[in-house]
Amino acid sequence: MTAEVLPALRAKVRAAAHPSAEACACGTDTSVLADRPDGTVVRHGRTVAKAHAPGTDRAGLTARLAVAAHPALDGILLPPHGPRTAELDGRPVTFWSYGTPVDRDDPDAAPWEEAATLLARLHRTPDTVLPPGLPPMRGPAKAARAVARLLAAGPHPAADPVLRAWAVLPAWARDESPMPENLRALCHGDLHLGQLVRSGNGEWLLIDIDDLGRGDPAWDLARPAAWFACGLLPPDEWSRFLTAYRQAGGTAVPADSDPWPALDVPARALSVQTAAQAIAKSVAAGRPLDEVETSVIDACDRMAAHPPELAPDFAT
Rank of each mutant, 00 (worst) to 15 (best):
P19I: 14
D313V: 14
T128Y: 02
R184P: 02
A255E: 11
N201H: 06
A15H: 06
L183I: 02
T47V: 15
R287G: 02
A11H: 10
G200D: 14
L163S: 07
W204H: 10
D264K: 09
A159K: 06
E114G: 01
R43V: 05
G82R: 03
H81R: 15
P140M: 11
P234Q: 09
L263E: 03
G39A: 00
P259W: 01
A66H: 06
L61C: 12
T274W: 11
L122P: 10
A68W: 04
G99I: 09
H156C: 03
I76H: 05
A171Q: 07
G202M: 09
G82H: 06
A276V: 07
V265H: 08
V162E: 06
G194K: 06
L232P: 04
A116H: 05
Y98V: 07
A276R: 09
A225G: 14
G90R: 01
D220Q: 12
A284E: 13
R246W: 00
T128W: 03
H188L: 04
T94R: 05
A225T: 14
E203N: 10
R223E: 10
E203I: 05
A244L: 01
D160F: 03
T125K: 01
L6D: 03
Q247F: 07
G200S: 08
F241G: 01
H123S: 00
T30G: 01
H192L: 02
P261V: 08
L118K: 09
G99W: 12
I297D: 05
G60T: 12
L119D: 00
P7R: 08
V296R: 14
R174E: 07
P180G: 03
Y98N: 11
P312A: 04
P140R: 10
T56A: 13
N182D: 14
A21S: 12
A315R: 15
W227K: 12
T56I: 08
A63S: 13
V162C: 05
D29F: 03
V13H: 00
A69K: 03
D290G: 12
D29Y: 04
P308E: 07
R104C: 02
P170D: 06
M303S: 13
R164A: 14
A34F: 03
H123D: 00
D290E: 10
L122W: 11
H52L: 14
P217N: 01
A21E: 15
P135C: 13
A299F: 05
H192S: 13
G189N: 12
S282F: 05
A167K: 05
G202Q: 06
T117Y: 00
T125E: 01
S97H: 13
A63W: 02
A262E: 13
A218E: 00
P92R: 04
R138Q: 14
A17V: 02
P80D: 08
A146W: 08
W172F: 13
G213R: 04
E113F: 02
V13E: 00
R43K: 14
R198T: 12
F95P: 03
C24R: 10
T128S: 15
A276P: 06
D208F: 10
A167L: 05
A159I: 04
Q277Y: 06
R145P: 06
